[in-house]
Write a protein that binds this DNA or RNA. Structure first.
Lengths: 183, 183
DNA sequence: CCAATTACGCTACTTGAAGTATCGATACTA
DNA sequence: TAGTATCGATACTTCAAGTAGCGTAATTGG
């Protein structure tokens, strides 16, 4: 039998998926700034205190929501170039989905001057993809970090400046540019 | 004689430069989130109300501060490639100066879900550089916007994720990559 | 000198959101 | 049934953006 049986006490209700969906929906409808924890909790049909029992801060909630929304990066492609191209198009499409880009940009900017949140964002969101890509592309850490800066930074800058995701034409240009840098 | 003589009433004191300096200093020391208008005003030696008499919001103050801090882009270089390379190194150095990168990233994230601030940021900060670069590089608007997304987005993403400006080695890689895309 | 005008500093206030504290009720385990 | 942990609800604290009002200072024009 497993070492950990069910612990005593009332079990947690399985509301994580509902909270994540409510988070993206609220951010999409009201924008990051107006997507307060109060409103997200109300949209999910739970109390605000329940949110804070599971995630220590709004930034941590958004980060967890993004981790859940992104899921694993698809590592498909015949060679390194095709693999990286697919990864770039995948993240571009994800950031273009309703709420995700705004949530990403919002938590990112919150993290700029919040070292604790930066740590959460870096370890929980960026590091998994960085490690997988290092392995798949056979590139050193600093090169993969550079590519992530370029791709994600470009996509978020466009999203932040225009409020709209990048067009497929510009994503194509981004892919071409990065692939040439990959060599 | 000029059409506008001095208007009646007490003239404004010339504190703009002091406020800008205090803004960058405060953001550098405390971070964007803790650089409140109260603290900035105190650091500049003026009342908070005076700040709001001149700039309608904190975002507008930060934007004006950045416009002042950046100044005109140096358009030097023998050809288009050298010119763009110099411009990229210039903006990278500026974003690396104390307070500027954090202020930029902060106001940028504030703007993501604040259309009014986005308008201010786009017209007062981005458009002047875009127009000058369109002319100097003889490139269409969408190409210049793409380059700005790539360069500024990459630099801010690095700044946001690590808290440190990009190293000269990585700036070199950024220059190489963009120059190859310029063709 | 004096009125009108405008900016300043100061204090107090409103508003909104993050995060906390408490408590009764509920859903489990042993 | 006792113990434990979660939930919802309400209230609260804290902090920062932005506003209002007032007495005072600086300037122009008569």
């Amino acid at each position: 039998m497993p070492a950990s049986t069910r612990p005593p006490g009332r079990p947690r209700t399985g509301v994580d998926a509902a909270v994540f969906a409510a988070t993206l929906r609220t951010v999409h409808e009201l924008g990051y700034a107006h997507a307060t924890v109060d409103r997200i909790a109300a949209a999910a049909g739970i109390a605000k205190t329940t949110v804070y029992r599971r995630w220590p801060s709004k930034g941590a909630l958004i980060t967890a929501c993004l981790v859940d929304a992104f899921g694993p990066v698809p590592l498909t492609g015949a060679d390194r170039s095709a693999l990286l191209a697919n990864a770039i198009r995948w993240i571009a499409a994800k950031i273009g989905e309703p709420g995700i880009g705004a949530a990403f940009a919002g938590v990112f900017t919150d993290a700029v001057n919040d070292p604790a949140l930066r740590q959460v964002l870096s370890t929980q969101l960026q590091d998994p993809y960085r490690l997988v890509l290092q392995d798949a592309l056979d590139e050193p850490e600093h090169r993969v970090l550079f590519f992530i800066d370029v791709v994600v930074g470009t996509l978020l800058h466009r999203m932040g400046m225009t409020g709209e995701p990048m067009t497929t034409t510009d994503v194509d240009a981004l892919v071409d540019m990065v692939l040439r840098a990959l060599g």
